[in-house]
Deep mutational scan, measured.
Amino acid sequence: DVEPGKFYKGVVTRIEKYGAFINLNEQVRGLLRPRDMISLRAENLNVGDEIIVQAIDVRPEKREIDFKYIP
């Protein structure tokens, strides 16, 4: 289970104008929005990159997770 405030290692699987999709594993995926990329620009991300993200909002009923990148 993903808990708000905890840090996780994930892999960038898709990049859109509104953010990057980060997979923690095959069943868990969330969104890293540009406003939550402190000191990281979306254009510096590539599909396949491994990054550490913090879960900031977890909505299990919608199967949605928002992440924040903190260097």
Rank of each mutant, 00 (worst) to 15 (best):
D49P: 01
R41F: 10
P71A: 14
E64W: 14
E64D: 04
M37W: 07
P4L: 14
E3L: 13
A55V: 15
Y8R: 01
L40G: 06
D49Q: 10
G19M: 09
N25M: 06
V11H: 05
G30P: 02
R35V: 09
P60C: 10
V11Y: 11
I51F: 03
K62C: 11
L24E: 01
K6V: 08
E64P: 03
T13A: 08
V53G: 00
E43Q: 11
I22Y: 01
G48D: 02
V53H: 00
E16T: 15
E43A: 13
V53F: 05
I38Q: 12
E3F: 12
E43R: 12
E16N: 14
E3N: 06
R29L: 09
G30L: 08
V11S: 02
D66M: 13
R33Y: 05
R14K: 10
Y69L: 07
N23S: 15
N23M: 14
G5K: 03
Q27C: 13
V28F: 08
A55S: 02
T13S: 10
T13C: 09
N23Y: 12
V53S: 00
T13Y: 07
I22S: 00
K62M: 11
Y18N: 06
K62H: 08
R33P: 03
G30A: 06
E43Y: 12
L40E: 04
L40Q: 05
E16H: 10
G5Q: 04
R35D: 08
I15G: 00
Q27W: 15
N25F: 09
R41V: 11
P4Q: 10
Q54N: 03
A20I: 15
I52V: 13
E3V: 15
G48S: 01
R29V: 13
I38H: 13
I15M: 06
I65L: 06
L45W: 04
F7H: 04
K68D: 03
K68W: 06
V2M: 05
N46W: 10
R35T: 09
G19V: 08
Q54W: 10
L31C: 08
V47D: 01
A42I: 15
L40T: 07
I52E: 04
Y18S: 05
R63M: 12
V11D: 00
E16S: 14
F67N: 03
A42G: 10
D57K: 15
V47S: 01
K62R: 12
I51T: 00
D1C: 15
D57A: 15
E26Q: 13
G30N: 02
Q54R: 05
K17N: 09
K6A: 07
S39L: 14
D49V: 05
I38C: 14
I22V: 11
E61K: 09
F67E: 03
K62G: 06
P60N: 08
I56A: 06
L24M: 03
R29K: 09
Q27H: 15
D66T: 12
V47G: 00
A42L: 15
I15H: 01
K17M: 08
Y8W: 02
I70T: 09
R59T: 04
P71M: 12
D1G: 13
A55Y: 04
S39E: 12
R59Q: 03
I56M: 12
D66Q: 09
F21Y: 14
E64K: 07
V47C: 05
R63S: 11
V53C: 05
F21R: 02
I56F: 08
K9T: 08
V47Y: 02
K68I: 11
I52P: 01
I22M: 01
Y69V: 06
N46I: 09
R63P: 06
G19A: 06
R14W: 07
E3M: 13
R14C: 07
Y69T: 04
P4K: 15
M37V: 07
E26I: 13
R35L: 08
E16D: 12
L31Y: 04
Y18T: 05
F21K: 01
D49N: 04
P71D: 11
E64M: 11
G10D: 01
I38N: 13
I52K: 03
V12W: 01
R35W: 07
G48I: 01
R14Q: 10
I70M: 09
Y18W: 15
R14D: 02
A42K: 14
V53E: 00
E64I: 12
D66L: 15
I65H: 04
G5M: 06
E61G: 12
P71R: 13
L45M: 07
F7R: 05
R41C: 12
V11R: 10
D1S: 13
R63L: 10
G48K: 01
E64H: 11
G30D: 02
R14E: 04
A55F: 07
R14M: 06
G5W: 06
E61V: 07
E61S: 11
D66F: 15
A42M: 15
E64T: 08
R33T: 04
N44Y: 12
V12N: 00
G30H: 02
F21H: 05
Y18C: 08
P71F: 09
D36F: 10
F21L: 09
N46C: 14
E64V: 08
P71V: 09
V58L: 05
P4I: 15
P4N: 08
D49F: 07
A20S: 04
L40Y: 05
D1F: 15
L24W: 02
G30M: 06
L24N: 00
Q27G: 12
A42Y: 15
R41I: 10
Q54G: 02
N44M: 14
R41K: 14
A20C: 08
E16C: 13
D36V: 07
S39V: 10
D36E: 06
A55C: 15
E3Y: 11
I22H: 00
I70D: 11
V11K: 10
E26L: 11
S39G: 15
R35Y: 07
V2S: 03
E61M: 08
S39W: 14
I51V: 08
M37D: 03
V28D: 05
F67Q: 04
N46Y: 10
D36I: 09
P4T: 12
I38R: 11
R29H: 09
R59K: 05
D36C: 12
K68Q: 09
E61H: 11
D1Q: 13
I56Q: 05
R59M: 04
E61D: 14
N44L: 13
P60Y: 09
I65S: 02
V53K: 00
V28Y: 09
E50A: 10
E3P: 06
P4H: 07
K17H: 12
G19Q: 07
K9C: 15
R33S: 06
V58G: 04
D1I: 14
D1H: 14
V53I: 07
G10R: 00
Q54F: 13
Y18Q: 07
E3H: 12
G19T: 08
R35M: 08
L32M: 06
M37R: 03
V47K: 03
F67K: 02
Y8D: 00
V2W: 06
E26K: 14
R29W: 14
L40F: 09
K9G: 01
F7L: 07
V58F: 07
Q54T: 05
I70H: 09
G10H: 01
Q54C: 12
Y18K: 06
F67G: 03
L31S: 02
R29P: 03
E43T: 11
F7V: 05
Q54D: 01
D57Q: 14
V58T: 06
K68C: 11
E3A: 09
N44V: 10
V28A: 04
I56E: 03
A55D: 01
P71L: 09
F7P: 01
Y8S: 00
R63F: 11
Y69W: 10
F67R: 02
D36A: 06
Y69H: 06
K17W: 15
L31T: 05
D49L: 08
E3I: 15
V58I: 09
A20N: 01
R41H: 10
E61L: 09
